[in-house]
Nucleic acid binder design. Structure first.
Lengths: 259, 259
DNA sequence: GCGGCGTGTTGGCCATTGAAAGACAAAGGA
DNA sequence: TCCTTTGTCTTTCAATGGCCAACACGCCGC
């Protein structure tokens, strides 16, 4: 294997995994740790990675002050691309609803360039992020604080959502399948999403391509409930065609290209 | 795991939870407390967190929430005493409402020994603190997220409070005076407090003695609305007598003495 | 064959970590 | 209020493992 090939593979892993260890790379590429260090040195001189004790981290992600939660997340590049694409649908002054979840959080970060937004969300993380990074008016639904992730659910949350009508709701989904429709894993969230769908003129679902064809156990509703689906380039063209036949606008977010 | 990954993870938790304990981190990240302390030291040198005894707090919130920070440090001993005294009024299994503010936050900390509580609050900080330190069921009122301090106010918050009836409400106050009654500085909070008073069987006001005789501009209501006042030893005995003549139970918290 | 290049190996050095001991701070009881 | 107890912080030390520099080896083209 050529040195340059190996370095590309290393960069690829650093990008997808955010960080990498020298021993892991040496192991999987069947070269010595010293070779890996020399490769990382070369990549660092090109400004592509940053070396740290024991390995290296993605230089680009490291530059920004993004939340760790995002970096750690699998398929973060896809989600970031989806978040950026979704933010393009938002105009200054819009009133939108934002869901719980990592994709939604990345989306909120992409909203920092917008002005005078009104955002309603059940996610504490999203609310605090928006408060820090933007001038948005943030309305938090009430509800019972969940254990696993800081968001609010239950009767109060649903009642709060019903008080509003938003121009666009941005929803996450655990699964998108042609037969079962939109599904998810947490039934508490599902109920809230149903309400969110009802109180929005336009429904946009954010789901990376790994969710396509997946049937999670709690059903949110049929596919026709969504007006727009934003996903990444991993979407099968046949799936895309079928979705478009149902009248759903499918936007494929291009992952930002790396030099 | 790389040291830098661990530090990012720590930072993420500090940001979302506002504060964190060394032992909790050591436990969940499976490293020794010494390693965590070194990580926190590194993060502190980058200006990202501020170390405190037992853990660390979010530096950004400290800097941004200047007002809150000041209130946090001022008369903290008295507030802690008041919080502890107030916690004595709470039984396992109680359903209570908790207000916004530093005193309320200290009170929530003192609730860690209680079990199976149900707490309703408009304060994000209080909610996250309770989620972290106790097994309480936490219900957050909805509402508009405020700029200066993370709590929720407005129509939604009031509507949410009206959905409940609690055995005891714990209220903060900016001023307690015999003529103007209970007053405060933020009119948004005042409206919410009025509602909180209405939906509680017992009303307990937490106010350190510096608030006595103070008339802040927004009126919450007459003194007779409160059943119990918890304050510190700085309370004038004449004031205490007059309050007791009004049928208010006055509890004086003994501040732990500092060497 | 010879020099350049990339790679592996080796030994010394340094960074990170965890354990232990003593100092210090906080909480609770007499 | 004082003292005890408990928990936390700091310092020090040893061990582990990663880093670096130097050198040897093999491959390739000339």
């Amino acid at each position: 294997m050529l040195a340059i090939e190996r370095q590309r593979m290393i960069l690829d892993r650093v990008v997808t995994e955010s960080s990498i260890r020298v021993v892991d790379l040496a192991d999987s590429l069947h070269v010595s740790g010293e070779t890996i260090r020399r490769d990382l040195l070369a990549l660092e001189q090109q400004g592509l990675v940053r070396r740290v004790h024991g390995g290296a981290v993605d230089a680009r992600q490291d530059a920004g002050d993004r939340l760790f939660q995002e970096r750690e997340t699998i398929r973060i590049e896809e989600k970031r691309a989806i978040g950026l694409r979704a933010a393009e649908l938002v105009q200054d002054g819009d009133i939108i609803a934002v869901d719980v979840g990592t994709t939604a959080l990345v989306f909120c970060e992409a909203l920092r360039s917008k002005r005078r937004l009104t955002v309603i969300t059940p996610s504490i993380k999203a609310a605090l992020l928006l408060r820090q990074t933007s001038d948005a008016r943030v309305i938090v639904t009430g509800g019972e604080l969940q254990e696993d992730e800081p968001y609010l659910a239950g009767y109060l949350a649903e009642a709060a959502l019903r008080q509003f009508h938003v121009t666009r709701a941005f929803i996450s989904a655990g699964g998108i399948a042609l037969d079962t429709g939109i599904t998810d894993y947490h039934d508490g969230e599902v109920q809230m999403r149903k309400v969110m769908l009802q109180c929005a003129s336009q429904v946009t679902v954010l789901a990376d391509s790994s969710k396509m064809g997946v049937r999670a156990f709690a059903v949110v509703g049929p596919l026709r409930l969504m007006d727009t689906l934003i996903t990444d380039a991993g979407l099968h063209s046949s799936m895309q065609q079928k979705l478009e036949q149902l009248g759903i606008e499918v936007l494929v977010a291009e992952a930002p290209v790396r030099k």
